[in-house]
């Protein structure tokens, strides 16, 4: 076990995978010599050489497109899109190609690639460095989608994603890179060093895709969250004194529906929290699934707390970000109904 930030945990996952399997290659914009703008690949080029970790031209379609070709050859590319907001030029390659290759060729060709991208807001990134596009990927058959909320999961889920035989979209909440964040931006940064989930196991232990984790046990209401919102939900529970159970979904596709239904059936109430815009967001899917599978256990309508259906603003970031006050209001409302 070692104390690590999420950045260090992600870097270590790369290191472990590259050490174990020479088919693992790592590239992206600023990823090689410099080690990534967030430093998630620092030191890998020096250790493994320029043919296994290198800088790519600023062309996301090219980064993903070449990775698909490499996977067809038999390599396991782990590529970085510098910000999730930059992934759209690669969307055709992801949706029409990576996601479909196994099915359309009946397994003649497969696409075991991992596409990492920093996601979410909270760093004054404005509309081009803050987005949460998870629903654009969960809507696509053939992709898996993971979003860790802490260093331990970041390493374990990334190792699981690299080992996975299918393409994985790996979303890294950048606000959590250096410490947990509960939405109180006025408070000083909390370090991972003092957080139990900053303790990261050595070696190649994976966190399996498709398994949620309970971050706070509670009896009265289930909060479904992932990424940064896990800490916001925990803060809202503490501040309102409501006995909420906070579920960290960790993987959105495949989804741990069993964990969700067993919690909601126990509490009888459900609040869904995400940072992405609301309309057609992943919360809508969660709400449908909870309604379909837990309707007769529900004591109150399900509530969503999300980013607004606007571009992610710069100066108004904290009015956009669904912080603990808004989540707390939802908890109170769902308890009153």
């Amino acid at each position: 076990m070692a104390k690590m930030t999420m950045i260090e945990a992600i870097r270590e996952a790369h290191d472990v995978a590259m050490e174990a399997d020479e088919r693992v290659v790592v590239y992206g914009e600023d990823v090689g010599y410099f080690g990534g703008v967030f430093r998630c690949t620092a030191g890998l080029q020096a250790k493994y050489g320029t043919s296994r970790c290198f800088d790519a031209p600023i062309n996301e379609a090219g980064i993903v497109g070449t990775a698909i070709g490499m996977a067809a050859y038999g390599l396991k590319p782990v590529i970085e899109i510098q910000f999730a907001d930059y992934v759209y030029p690669a969307y055709d390659q992801i949706v029409s190609e990576a996601a479909r290759l196994r099915h359309r060729s009946n397994g003649d060709f497969t696409c075991p690639i991992v596409i990492r991208m920093p996601t979410g807001g909270g760093i004054f990134g404005g509309q081009t460095h803050s987005q949460s596009p998870e629903a654009l990927f969960t809507h696509v058959s053939g992709l898996k989608v993971a979003m860790p909320s802490n260093p331990r999961d970041a390493k374990g889920l990334l190792l699981a994603s690299i080992a996975d035989p299918d393409p994985v979209i790996f979303l890294e909440p950048k606000r959590l890179y250096n410490g947990p964040f509960d939405g109180h931006h006025e408070n000083p940064l909390v370090s991972w060093k003092n957080h139990p989930l900053g303790e990261v196991p050595d070696g190649d232990d994976i966190v399996p895709l498709g398994k949620a984790a309970i971050r706070r046990e509670g009896a009265d209401v289930t909060v479904l969250a992932y990424g940064t919102m896990v800490y916001v939900a925990q803060a809202a529970a503490e501040e309102t004194g409501i006995d909420a159970e906070v579920l960290d979904l960790r993987t959105l596709m495949p989804l741990d529906l069993d964990a969700i239904t067993s919690s909601v059936k126990k509490t009888g109430r459900c609040v869904i929290v995400h940072e992405a815009t609301r309309t057609s967001g992943f919360g809508a899917e969660l709400m449908s699934l909870v309604q379909e599978s837990c309707f007769y256990h529900l004591e109150a309508p399900i509530i969503r707390v999300t980013g607004w259906d606007t571009p992610y603003p710069h100066a108004q970031e904290w009015e956009y970000f669904p912080g603990p006050a808004r989540v707390g209001e939802a908890l109170k409302k769902v308890m009153e109904d």
């Binding site: 290659v25 043919s51 296994r52 379609a61 090219g62 497109g65 070449t66 990775a67 698909i68 070709g69 490499m70 067809a72 050859y73 038999g74 390599l75 055709d92 390659q93 029409s96 190609e97 479909r100 290759l101 359309r104 060729s105 003649d108 060709f109």
Partner: peptide
């Protein structure tokens, strides 16, 4: 795969850059 013929896509042009990736992989390996 056996006959050196990659799965065809109906989305035009996507395979052009994939061929470059495949070739890069051969060089990497």
């Amino acid at each position: 795969q056996e006959h050196g013929f990659f799965s065809i896509s109906g989305n035009l042009g996507t395979q052009f850059v994939q061929s470059v990736g495949w070739a890069m992989a051969s060089a990497i390996s």
